[in-house]
Amino acid sequence: MTLPPNPPDDDRLVDFLRRHRPAPPPAAPQLEAQMMAQLTPLSSPPVLTQPRRWAIPAVAAALVLGVGGWVVGRSTVPSLPTASASEVEVFLADTWYGSAYDDEVRLPLDTTQPDWLASVYATPY
């Protein structure tokens, strides 16, 4: 919003106000002396207190230890051995095979052969 330009009598108004503004009553004679006597020593500019000064390196060290520990721990967590996957495979095949056939007709299963699954289907019920 654009305000209209100052009316031409603004200067006259301001001049009137300045010429006729009431003057404040004079200060009490001892005001300055009393005030200066009551000034307490200035406190120093705010600085880091002792605990806070230690807090920064402590937090940094904690971060380094935390992140480092996480990285090291992550690399040493034992991963599932690849052998166990094949063992699970054999177990599943055995279970399924065993549920379909009697023990006497159950043939040993060699899952190392590429066509071991075909051999399963080739076995007569």
Binding site: M35, T40, L42
Partner: peptide
């Protein structure tokens, strides 16, 4: 302060301003 608040307690108000200024100097 006089134009804003009048003459009552004017000395006290002036004192308060300069006390606050003194205490606030470090900041």
């Amino acid at each position: 302060l006089f134009q804003l608040c009048g003459a009552a307690e004017l000395d006290d108000l002036v004192q308060e301003v300069f006390f606050r200024a003194w205490k606030g100097l470090p900041k």
